[in-house]
Every structure is written in structure tokens, then in C-alpha cells.
């Protein structure tokens, strides 16, 4: 209890924070979805907002799924890491290739802090929630790191795709060249397992 950062324990015991946030759960989900949509050029927003079919609007769908998972961390004792990881991964996978600068692609996670702070300060219970807020914000930071990891991973994958595509498209030419040079291609180039 004496650690200055706040702990999961604080969130658990921070019934005040829970009570403050709970009525706003859905509003916070929507707000965060709004932030993500807001990061797109504004001609796009309307479409993202009005259509939530999983196949007709994959971006909007993934955003909503991520928002739901993300909001859960505010309310659960032990956030389910696998679910969270998946939701973050799926949305960042899209944002990693969508022409955003890295800070915008990943930065949307931090917006959750502002959303929570707004709700808490409007409730006038800020002081009572302090320790729990610290803990919560650390959690959000952890999610942001998760998003950063996902971003890096997907960008790296993207570049690997180019390399692998190039190899695939010339596979038999390489083989021909290797054969002419008296080598078997397997010796020269490790195949993807």
C-alpha cells in the first residue's frame, strides 16, 4: 500500500474509482472509438462510424473490438492478457500500414487516460481516486507498450514480406543460377522452414 505508483491492490480497493467509472463505461468505449476514428482524414470518419459490419467495414469493426477489450482493463482485477493482446494486435496491425506516423498509430492508447481523467474530474471525486488512478494509468502505459511492440513487429513483418516476395518470385531463377555456378540452391540459401 505504501508504494507511490499504486498497485492492482489499489484498483481493487479503489471502489470509489470503480463506482465513478462504471456508469460511463459505454460512453468511454464510444469516446475512445471516436478518438481512433478522429485520427483518420475526416472524409473517412463518417463511413467508419456508420457501418460496423465485420466484413463490410473491417477497420471500424476492429476498432470497436479493441475499444471493448481496452475498457475492460478499467474494470477487471486481472486483465485477461491474451484477449487484450489480441485486440491491441489486431487494431495496430491495421494502423501500422495505414499511413499514420508511428506516434499517431500507437498514441491512440494514451487517449484513454484523458477519457478517464475527464470522467473522474467531472465526478468531483478526484482526491479519493488518486492511488487507484495511478495504478490504472500504469496499466494503460503497459497497454501502450504492448501497442508499441505490435507496431514494431508489424512494420518489421511488412519489410520481411518484401524480401520474401522477392525470393519467391525469383526462386527458380536463383536455382538456375546456382546450378550454373555448380551449387545446389539449398546450400546457398536457407529455405523458410
Amino acid at each position: 500500500m505504501s508504494t507511490p505508483q499504486g498497485t492492482d491492490e489499489d484498483i481493487r480497493s479503489g471502489t470509489t474509482l470503480y463506482a465513478v467509472l462504471w456508469p460511463h463505461k459505454e460512453a468511454m468505449v464510444n469516446r475512445w472509438v471516436g478518438v481512433v476514428h478522429g485520427s483518420y482524414p475526416f472524409e473517412t470518419i463518417g463511413f467508419l462510424r456508420t457501418n460496423s459490419n465485420r466484413f463490410a467495414n473491417p477497420v471500424g469493426y476492429r476498432t470497436e473490438e479493441a475499444a471493448k477489450a481496452l475498457i475492460e482493463i478499467l474494470f477487471t482485477d486481472q486483465p485477461e492478457e491474451a484477449t487484450l493482446h489480441k485486440a491491441v494486435d489486431e487494431i495496430i496491425r491495421v494502423r501500422a500500414i495505414q499511413d499514420f506516423p508511428p506516434e499517431t498509430a500507437v498514441g491512440v492508447v494514451f487517449a484513454l487516460k484523458d477519457i478517464v481523467r475527464e470522467v473522474v474530474s467531472a465526478s468531483g471525486q478526484g482526491a479519493a481516486c488518486l492511488r487507484a488512478m495511478w495504478a490504472l494509468e500504469s496499466r494503460i502505459d503497459a497497454v501502450a507498450l504492448m501497442a508499441f511492440g505490435a507496431y514494431a513487429r508489424h512494420r518489421e513483418r511488412l519489410h520481411l514480406l518484401k524480401v520474401e516476395e522477392h525470393k519467391r518470385s525469383h526462386s527458380q531463377l536463383m536455382r538456375l543460377a546456382m546450378r550454373k555456378a555448380g551449387m545446389e540452391p539449398e546450400e546457398a540459401e536457407p529455405q523458410k522452414p
Binding site: 469516446r31 471516436g34 478518438v35 476514428h37 478522429g38 485520427s39 475526416f42 472524409e43 470518419i45 463518417g46 506516434e103 499517431t104 498514441g107 491512440v108 494514451f110 487517449a111 487516460k113 484523458d114 477519457i115
Partner: peptide, 20 residues
């Protein structure tokens, strides 16, 4: 210094004013 929180304020539900 850019702030992550600025993102939250950048949402615009207005219709685009500039023609395509």
C-alpha cells in the same frame, strides 16, 4: 511538444467543407 492527448480533441464530426 506534441501531446498524445491532443488526439482526443481532434475528432471532428463536421461534414467536410472542402470539395473533393
Amino acid at each position: 511538444l506534441p501531446k498524445a492527448s491532443e488526439l482526443a480533441k481532434s475528432i471532428s464530426y463536421a461534414f467536410p467543407k472542402v470539395s473533393w
